[in-house]
């Protein structure tokens, strides 16, 4: 999947904006948004927020989880946990990227946010790489990938599924004696959580 398509999905996430104009309810196909009252915060999908921001008719409120203090906690947790921690938002990367690009003036300490989110991403990617390495070495037939976000899954998609497919083919050819070996003691059900 193209990263743009992952972004496309992420743009459906709701964010809070503070409009600078008054307007009634807009009946979008996906649901109603509004009414807009200048100065009153209101929830809209990200793609709406970006469009309004580009016309300079709103401010985007930074999501709570994007606070620098909170991100530092998340980063520490991610560093200390063996497994993947649950991210505050399925599309945390897309949201951060969009806000940094289109509304950097609405963020508090934007540069630190950029660094922290990149750090969290890097920690997770390195974890992902070592998990994949283990998974391949153990010749597993499946694995739990809980708490991975779509963009992260997407980053291993070009390689991992094909590698597992090749292993599966080899297993089939190897015959039963090795097959029993792999199913003994549940080594085959290696989980990203363990």
């Amino acid at each position: 999947m193209d990263p743009e398509e992952v972004e496309f999905l992420g743009e459906k996430e709701n964010v809070v904006i503070v409009p600078t104009f008054n307007y009634g309810v807009i009946h979008l196909i996906a649901g109603d948004i509004g009414p807009f009252r200048a100065g009153l915060p209101i929830k809209v999908p990200l793609w709406v927020a970006i469009n309004l921001k580009q016309q300079q008719t709103c401010k985007i409120q930074q999501p709570d989880w994007m606070d620098v203090e909170n991100l530092e906690v998340l980063k520490e947790n991610e560093k200390n946990a063996i497994t993947f921690t649950r991210m505050p938002n399925e599309h945390y990367m897309a949201l951060t990227k969009a806000l940094l690009k289109f509304a950097p003036d609405d963020l508090i300490r934007a540069n630190e946010i950029r660094t922290l989110v990149k750090d969290i991403w890097d920690i997770r990617m390195s974890k992902l790489r070592s998990s994949v390495d283990l998974l391949i070495k153990e010749k597993s037939s499946y694995a739990a990938v809980d708490n991975l976000t779509i963009l992260e899954i997407n980053s291993v998609r070009p390689l991992l599924p094909h590698a597992l497919d090749q292993i599966h083919r080899m297993k089939k050819l190897q015959g039963p004696q090795l097959g029993t070996n792999s199913s003994a003691g549940h080594t085959s059900s290696y989980s990203f959580r363990s």
Partner: peptide
């Protein structure tokens, strides 16, 4: 049902 190549496993 997980196809293990030779014998199956269910999860």
């Amino acid at each position: 049902i997980i196809d293990e190549g030779n014998d199956d496993e269910t999860v």
